[in-house]
Design a protein around this nucleic acid. Structure first.
Length: 528
RNA sequence: GAGACCGUAGCUCAGUCGGUAGAGCACGGCACUUUUAAUGCUGGGGUCGUGGGUUCGAGUCCCACCGGUCUCACCA
C-alpha cells in the first residue's frame, strides 16, 4: 500500500502498469466530479435473485392505456421478443423502482448508451444507462467506470427491446473503484497457483467458485442442524494439546512462553470429547480445525476440518445411522440430488449405504483368507512389503490399504476392523480380536471413521502402553495419556463415536477433485 | 523427501529447425440510443520465473535455484 501513486498522476500508455494508471486517471476524474470513489453505506438494495423474481410485475402499457403482460421467455424460449414488442404498437414498459449494487463484470457501449452487467453474490443483472435518460452528471460518472468497479444503481426494472431484464438507470453511484485490472472477463482465472494465492479473484471472476464455497457453508450448517435436532451439543475443545493424541499423525509443535512448555496443535478432537462424556455431556460434538504435519496432496491439507460426534449409550451401529442422516441432510441442503456427478462417473448417495466387513472385503479383493496369517504375509511380500518383525494385523492392514481401499467406490461402510490396530475401540464381545469400528469409503477415500468407544480404563491403559510391532511411536495411535486414563476410571458411559472429514465430504458432494478446491486458503509456500 | 511436467503482455493462451516476440480478451483513441464475450476502425502494452552456461545468435539447448501441478512416499 505504500507504493500507491497519487490519484493525480497521469496515465502513461507506454509504461508497465499502464492498466492501473488508466484506472487511477478515472479515479481522479471521479473525485473531480465530486464522487467518493470508496463509497459508503448503500441501503434498500435488492439482491439480483430478488430482482429476477420480480420480473413478473413488469407490464407493457399500450398508448390506449391497456396493460399487457410480458410473455415468460423461460416458458417460450423460441419467442421473438423484438417482434412481439413491435406487435404491441406504441407504448412503454412499466416496472417497479429498484436499487441494486454489484461489481461490473461486463460492459458494452453503443454511443450514448451503455450496458453494464453488475454482479452480486446471488446473480447478475444488466444496467441500461442512456445519456439522455440519466443526465450529464450520471453520464460523466458512468464514463469513469471500469470492469471490476463496484457500483450502485437505481431505476425501473423492465425489459429491453431484446427482452433482457434490466434496470433502466436513473441514478448511478460509485461504491468502490477497482484500480487493478481484473482477470479475463470470460475465462476468469485458470492458473491454479493464482486461483489459490488470490482466492478473492477466483471467487469474484471464476465461474462456479463462489457457488461451491457457499455449498460448503450449507453442508456445515446442515450438519449443525442435523445434530442439533437430535439433541447434540456443540462444544469447543482446546487446540493446544500437551499430548497429541486421538490419531496417528505427526503434530505441529509450538511453545508457550509463560509456562515455558512445548505444546502441540491438535491432530484430533477425540480425547477431550470423551472426557465430556465422563462429565455427563451425553451427546456432544465439535466441528473444527485439526492440524497434521504431513504431506500435501489433492486429498490432504496440513490443516483441515473435522467433525467428531459422541453419543452416550450408543455404539458404532448408531453412528452408521447418524452418518447416513448427516450425509442425506447435507445433500438435501445443497440441491436434493442423491445421484451426484463425480468426474466422468456418478456417485449414488441414497441411503442406506452398503455394509461389508473388513475380512469379507479383504477376501473379495485379494482372494486370500484374511485369517490365514501366513498367506496374508506371503501376499504382502509379493506386493513388495517388508513383513519382518511386523504384527500380522499391521501386515494385513497394509495389504488392505494397497489392494482394497482404492477399489471401494462406495459409499460403503467397512465394518469390524482387526482389534490390534484400534487402540481406542471396544472389542466385540463375541471375538476380542475384532474391534467395533467402521470407516466410510467413497471413491477410495476415507470419509468417516467411527467406533464403539473403549471405556475400560485398564484395557485402555494397557493398549496405550503396547506399541504394535512394526509401528514407530510416531506412527502409533497409542500415546500414553494418563489424564485421559484417570478420566475413564471415573466412568465413561458406553458410547458411539464418529469422525467425518468435512473437506473430503464437501469434495465428494461438489464434484471437486482436489481438497484445495474446497478450502478457501490452502497452505502454499510463500511467494519469493 | 523422489520423479515427470509446467512458468511467455493485466488475464487466457500460441510460439515450427536456435535467427529481431504473436493472438484473443483487457487498456487508450474514434464512431454508434437496445447491446448480450456488442460491433467497426485505430493505437499502445514484454527483463519470455530468476541466475549462470553453450552459441556469431537462446523464449527455444544445458546447469542451478524459485514457484506450481501431478504421481509416488508420508498420512496405520
Amino acid at each position: 500500500m505504500t507504493e500507491t501513486q497519487s490519484p493525480s498522476s497521469s496515465p502513461t500508455d507506454d509504461s508497465p502498469g499502464f492498466h492501473e494508471a488508466a484506472r487511477r486517471e478515472k479515479l481522479r476524474r471521479m473525485i473531480e466530479l465530486g464522487h467518493d470513489p470508496w463509497g459508503s453505506r448503500y441501503d434498500d438494495r435488492s439482491l439480483m435473485r430478488e430482482l429476477r423474481a420480480r420480473a413478473g410485475e413488469i407490464r407493457f402499457v399500450q398508448a390506449s392505456g391497456k396493460e399487457v403482460e410480458i410473455p415468460d421467455r423461460a416458458a417460450e424460449p423460441d419467442l421473438d421478443f423484438r417482434g412481439w414488442l413491435q406487435d404491441q404498437g406504441k407504448g412503454e414498459m412499466r416496472g417497479p423502482k429498484v436499487r441494486a449494487a454489484g461489481r461490473i463484470v461486463l460492459s458494452r457501449d453503443a454511443g450514448k448508451l451503455r450496458f453494464l452487467n453488475i454482479q452480486d453474490w446471488t446473480g447478475n443483472i444488466q444496467l441500461l444507462v442512456g445519456k439522455a435518460q440519466v443526465g450529464e452528471a450520471n453520464w460523466a460518472l458512468a464514463e469513469c467506470f471500469d470492469l471490476g468497479d463496484i457500483v450502485g444503481a437505481s431505476g425501473m426494472l423492465a425489459f429491453t427491446k431484446t427482452g433482457e431484464l434490466s434496470i433502466f438507470v436513473e441514478e448511478l453511484t460509485i461504491l468502490t473503484k477497482c484500480v487493478a485490472p481484473p482477470p479475463d472477463k470470460h475465462a476468469g482465472l485458470a492458473d491454479p497457483e493464482l486461483r489459490q494465492r488470490m482466492r478473492y479473484l477466483d471467487l469474484a471472476y471464476t465461474d462456479g467458485v463462489r457457488e461451491r464455497f457457499l455449498q460448503r457453508t450449507k453442508v456445515v450448517q446442515s450438519i449443525r442442524s442435523t445434530l442439533g435436532k437430535q439433541g447434540f451439543c456443540e462444544i469447543e475443545g482446546p487446540t493446544l494439546h500437551s499430548i497429541a493424541g486421538g490419531a496417528a499423525a505427526r503434530p505441529f509443535t509450538t511453545h508457550h512462553n509463560t509456562l515455558d512448555i512445548d505444546l502441540f496443535l491438535r491432530i484430533a478432537l477425540e480425547l477431550h470429547l470423551k472426557r465430556l462424556l465422563v462429565g455427563g455431556m451425553e451427546r456432544v460434538y465439535e466441528l473444527g480445525r485439526v492440524y497434521r504435519n504431513e504431506g500435501i496432496s489433492p486429498r490432504h491439507n496440513p490443516e483441515f476440518t473435522m467433525l467428531e460426534v459422541y453419543q452416550a449409550f450408543g455404539d458404532y451401529r448408531s453412528m452408521m445411522d447418524l452418518t447416513e442422516a448427516i450425509v442425506a441432510d447435507a445433500i438435501e441442503a445443497i440441491d436434493g440430488n442423491f445421484k451426484r456427478p463425480w468426474g466422468e462417473s456418478v456417485i449414488d448417495f441414497s441411503p442406506p449405504f452398503d455394509r461389508k466387513t473388513y475380512d469379507e472385503l479383504f477376501a473379495e479383493h485379494t482372494g486370500v483368507d484374511p485369517q490365514d496369517t501366513a498367506a496374508v504375509a506371503k501376499l504382502a511380500e509379493s506386493i513388495g512389503f517388508d513383513t519382518a518383525g511386523k504384527h500380522p494385523d499391521v501386515i494385513k492392514s497394509e495389504v488392505f490399504e494397497e489392494k482394497v481401499e482404492d477399489a471401494l467406490v462406495g459409499p460403503i461402510f467397512v465394518i469390524d476392523y482387526p482389534a490390534s490396530i484400534c487402540p481406542l475401540t471396544k472389542r466385540k464381545k463375541s471375538n476380542p480380536n475384532v474391534a467395533e469400528r467402521f470407516e466410510l469409503f467413497v471413491q477410495g477415500m476415507e470419509v468417516a471413521n467411527a467406533y464403539t468407544e473403549l471405556n475400560d480404563p485398564d484395557l485402555q491403559e494397557q493398549l496405550f502402553k503396547t506399541q504394535l510391532a512394526g509401528l514407530s511411536e510416531e506412527d502409533s495411535m497409542a500415546k500414553m495419556d494418563h489424564d485421559f486414563i484417570r478420566a475413564l476410571k471415573h466412568g465413561m458411559p458406553p458410547a458411539g463415536g464418529l469422525g467425518i472429514g468435512i473437506d473430503r465430504l464437501v469434495m465428494l458432494l461438489t464434484n471437486s477433485p482436489s481438497i484445495r478446491d474446497v478450502i478457501l486458503f490452502p497452505l502454499l509456500r510463500p511467494e519469493a
